[in-house]
Simulated assay, not measured.
Amino acid sequence: MRDFLVVGGGVIGMMTTLQLADAGHRVTLVERGECGREASWAGGGIVSPLYPWRYSMPISQLSRWSEGFYPELSLRLLEETGIDPEYRQKGLLYLRVDDEARALEWAREVGKPLERVGADFLYAKEPQAAPGFENGLWMPTLGSIRNPRLVQALRARLEAMPKVELREGVAVERLLTEGDRVVGVASRDGQLSAEHTIVCGGAWAGQLLGTVGIDLPVRPVKGQMILFKAPPGLVERVVLMDGRYVIPRNDGRILAGSTLEDVGYDKATTAEARESLHASALCIIPALAQCPVEHHWAGLRPGSPDGIPFIGAAPGLQGLSVNAGHYRNGLVLAPASTRLLVDALLGRTPIVDPEPYRLPA
């Protein structure tokens, strides 16, 4: 029997599996589709909440820990797999921030570099930014990662680890119990057993936990994005305005996002969203009008109350833990939230107080 069974092959599930395998445990990772192809693939890869001063302390604690982890993880995965997750730390420019005073106060409180900059600085950093801005906010430490490459690298690393068994294309239907203990899962392809089961099912986590009577308030929230094929160097850093953003990649491509839609499990793209995202991107970088849109897609975020993830043991059942409900910040919080859970599973000192993330009784 395996030590751990991880359900859900997104960035949360794969990082959990990697840490457990690094610690010497035998882990099966089961994913209904292909690992890393849901929300982890669909997001933008900014390694920070968009407006971090607007979030509660539980989210801020996890995000600060995670930000410092990504450079190390990116280098490790490149060395071990040959796949470059393309971590870029080139900073972020905020345009038209309504609560600027609160942002600067937050930065002083947490010791985060954030400063008000004038037009000369702003356009020196991003000459193609929309004209007419007299000032903005500048966060030099913000990084971004090319999340499709990140999940490709994580999957390749796990596939090469002898203690990891990857089971893709396996749709888990329900959790299996014996008395008050979860002993594994039932799937269309049979049963899988382990000493401990971990649900990292993203927007689908609540459905699976419902099979054992746990009502977890996690729901799907659709987000749509578009990708411009732009020449390298047109945009060098993340630029954010009015809740929309552009994110450059090393090859010049530029992502623009994103929508927030409460439409259940519908992942269809819409012409309205494409037009809205295109207009927002051009408001930030007018030169994108000359660049074709190469791709348009949608993903489902695991929405939760206040965006605070549920991390820890399931109440009333032994052998079951959960890591779900990260809403817009799954990739941002993944290193810290998975480390927090693995610390609990292995009896190690937690990196932060686990209490704010406990599942409701």
Rank of each mutant, 00 (worst) to 15 (best):
L29I: 05
E72N: 09
G33T: 07
T338D: 11
Q207G: 00
W65T: 00
L341S: 13
P127D: 05
P335G: 03
D251F: 03
R249S: 14
G233H: 06
S193T: 11
L331G: 01
G190H: 07
R96H: 08
P220N: 04
Y123W: 02
L320D: 13
G243K: 02
S66K: 00
Q224M: 05
E86L: 09
G307C: 05
H326E: 08
A101K: 15
V117P: 02
R32S: 12
I12C: 02
A271W: 10
L345P: 08
P232S: 10
W41K: 05
Y265C: 00
L78C: 01
A344M: 12
P220T: 01
A230E: 06
T197N: 04
V293C: 05
L137N: 06
Q61S: 12
I311G: 12
A324E: 08
P220V: 03
V172N: 04
E173Q: 15
G307T: 10
E355F: 00
L142P: 00
K112I: 02
L341T: 13
G243L: 09
G10W: 12
E105F: 03
F69N: 02
D215Q: 10
P140K: 04
I284R: 06
G24Y: 09
R2T: 06
L122V: 04
V185R: 07
T28M: 11
R146F: 08
A39R: 05
R157F: 08
M14Y: 05
S304W: 01
G210K: 07
S40H: 08
I284L: 09
V11L: 10
L18Q: 15
P49F: 07
Q224V: 02
